[in-house]
Amino acid sequence: MSMHEITLIVNGKPQKLTVKSNELLLNVLRDKLFLTGAKYGCGIAECGACTVLKGDRSVMSCLVPAVAADGWEITTPEGLVVDGELNAVQEELVNKAAIQCGFCTPGMAMAGTACVRENPDADEDFVRDYMRGNYCRCTGYQAIVQAILAACEDAKNGKRV
């Protein structure tokens, strides 16, 4: 099994790592960089708990070989916080009490952020369609959708997303 020297740009910081060919991005983020925001849920890209951003686009880190992410600019849920301040999506998830057990919340914040960045004019149909890969097993979808719609308004008013 081959070993590889890689550099991930995580939340703006270059991270040099040595990884095995079969290691996964999610596990490297959690176990080597101690960024435990992204969660292990289903492990096969069906639930969205492991969502991170590659640039501005969401990907499921449970299905990315770490070695294949060499050179990627990655944002984890931790990276949405700047100088101790939540971004608009995170803040609205709190405001709308869109959190029950909380396990899906980091993934919702990531996918929701991608959604708002892609289309701040999103309506409810767009948001529900965009978020269909992120499961909340407490089924708290209504508040989550409302939070993302509110974050769209915040974004248009100049708040950071």
Partner: peptide, 14 residues
């Protein structure tokens, strides 16, 4: 089944 890791071992080339 453990979907957390890949148990198979292989080389990677790009």
């Amino acid at each position: 089944m453990n979907t957390k890791v890949i148990e198979a071992e292989y080389d990677y080339v790009k």
